[in-house]
Amino acid sequence: MKKEFKGTDSYIASDALSEVVNAATALGRPLLVKGEPGTGKTLLAHAVAKDLGKRLLVWNVKSTTKARDGLYIYDTVQRLHDSRFSDNDVSDIKNYIRMGKLGEAFTADEQVVLLIDEIDKADLEFPNDLLNELDEMSFHIHETDETISARHRPIVIITSNNEKELPDAFLRRCLFHFIAFPDEQMMERIVRVHHPDIENKLLAEIIKKFYWVRSLDSLRKKPSTSEIIDWVSALVTGGVDPRRIKKEIPFLGVLIKKEQDIDIVLAQANPY
């Protein structure tokens, strides 16, 4: 029986999320994950790798990243330099071809988890350039006329922050999951993972206050999961009394990062 992803000690996955991960694995298709910042999109891949006991390869996409960078890199400059002093065997082009992250995932000896992080950061054409590679799980190296195909179809997890729309043709090939913002019970479980010893009363007050802050519509950036975890750390370290949280918001700066938002929260908290 193949092991199924269920979440880990430090990463709580909803049923929907673990089902989707398992479905993507079974179908051999990439999983595209979207969601508010701080809902654990990137962590998902780490958790999947940890839970299934597989190696994780991370491909961080930047605005200048090109699809080919992930397949392989042909180091022309090195080869040109070498040719001046005949340091290496310049005639063998293979010496100057290095695998990118996708190439590494394809050539790995066992199935790996490949995280393509923040795919929307790159050029609009980037996802399109990867269509065939992700479909067939193989690519061609022009310089050596070699075809690299995946020995074991990697589990591909792609995250997007919604900065750009991804092309339809690309989307058709993926499974999609939107990580909704956790509700209060879920949040309680998540906080407990990070702070197992926290008092019930304190946690209840924190969560109540946190969702109240999030409910303010005019905020430019709503606090997310990573902020509440930092906030809990601050409150626990500072030894803040739960009653104080009821009345005010200590360490507001941990929760809210924008100046205007701080004003909004303070104005709402103390209307008089």
Binding site: A16, E19, V20, A23, A26, L31, L171, R172, F176
Partner: peptide, 25 residues
């Protein structure tokens, strides 16, 4: 996916599975 039995004969799993496959936004 249905053929592979991923929906587990449950409508709520089917609901999420079909959503993951069919809806991309």
């Amino acid at each position: 996916a249905l053929k592979a039995g991923l929906a587990d004969a449950s409508l709520s799993v089917f609901y999420r599975l079909a959503r993951a496959i069919l809806v991309k936004n």
